[in-house]
Design a protein around this nucleic acid. Sequence first.
DNA 1: TATATGAATACTGTATACAGTATACGTAAA
DNA 2: TTTACGTATACTGTATACAGTATTCATATA
Lengths: 219, 219
Amino acid sequence: MAFKSLSQPRVRLADEVYAQILQAIQNGAITSEDRIVQEKLAEEFGISRTPVREALFRMEQEGILAVAQRGGFKIRKIGPDEITELYEARCSIEGFAARLLAQRNDKALNMRLREIIADAEDLKNETVKAYFNANLTVHRAIVEASENRFLLEFFDNLWNRGSSFTLFSTIESTDLSKSLGDHMALIDAIESGNDTFAAEKMIAHISDGHRLQVQSGRV
Amino acid sequence: MAFKSLSQPRVRLADEVYAQILQAIQNGAITSEDRIVQEKLAEEFGISRTPVREALFRMEQEGILAVAQRGGFKIRKIGPDEITELYEARCSIEGFAARLLAQRNDKALNMRLREIIADAEDLKNETVKAYFNANLTVHRAIVEASENRFLLEFFDNLWNRGSSFTLFSTIESTDLSKSLGDHMALIDAIESGNDTFAAEKMIAHISDGHRLQVQSGRV
DNA sequence: TATATGAATACTGTATACAGTATACGTAAA
DNA sequence: TTTACGTATACTGTATACAGTATTCATATA
């Protein structure tokens, strides 16, 4: 009789702290007005400063947090220039992912992506948060399907920044039906097997999203 | 009379440790056979474990180091699949940088890039290391010129991995004259103002480098 | 000779102490 | 009332201690 393996990597408090801070940023419990101080957070968690400090450094390195005036960290805000660059970086990562998928031209995979898009856009609640998650699910599925761990790591890096939540949410929920068509058109382009065309379509899609951002005045 | 500002950010030991470890990896003082242990390194540096530990975590997060069997870290090796993905990620980043430069079509900038290429490829010593540095200088200049901080961060992330030194060195130094032409051809493509063409040229150039890697049997 | 077990050592995660720097606040003087 | 200065507090970087887990080694037994 075989037993189930009990071997597990050692769980670190720093990782749990990281996850909780990230969640607090995403659900608004920590805002861009807040100053995140090692000692204060350690007291809140009831642990020592060491794992808190390690988690905060990791988030700083990932661009989620920045050093605050008077000590501590804050959610890293980005200006219009950096927002443009963030969208450009998305074009680079996700455009190339589309290119790789078009080269592979895997029909079953493309069908699966269509299902993911349909599922993700079947929203129960048309809130900003629900829309952000749907958009993230779709775009991440495409990059994940490219099976390139670096592109996925860079994608997560871009989307995990605290400001991304508000940035990448669709501007108006009334765009939903339009957006649904847009995503399926991406799979159409991938299915064409033309890698440059697929990349261009993804780049155009993301650039459109950026244009909507600028037009909304949110930046 | 005005005085020179003395205000400087606080220097951290962890940053100095990071720089020294990275340099030791690049010049071969630390090899892929070595196991890097927090306590051992702290003793060598004559400091406590805390800054060493922070530096090692940072390198692990950047993909330079990986957790070793029996404790400690080692240089993160990558297999053939990951090498392919690393070149793909380069295509994504550097291809898009070329695209942005073609869109900008700044003649003075392009001239400056030509000078950088000529300088970088005027090698005094045709060693693997010299060649790696020349190649890095050229490719990084192009990404830096794109003025997108995310692309540059991702570029550095890819090139800073310990294995990158051997990966991205040109196979044979006799390729030098060919390589020199290749890089200038990239600027030709950028100067054409055709963004898709410039991107394709960069992608082809990097793919060629990957093909040479595979043919050399180094992977 | 091979295997099992106990002890020693290696290594790490976290807690806490200490020292230094930055900032805020209260008070006194102009 | 404003400014300057001293003190208190905030905050952080690093050192060191402690405890737990993993690995290695030596010895005993089969």
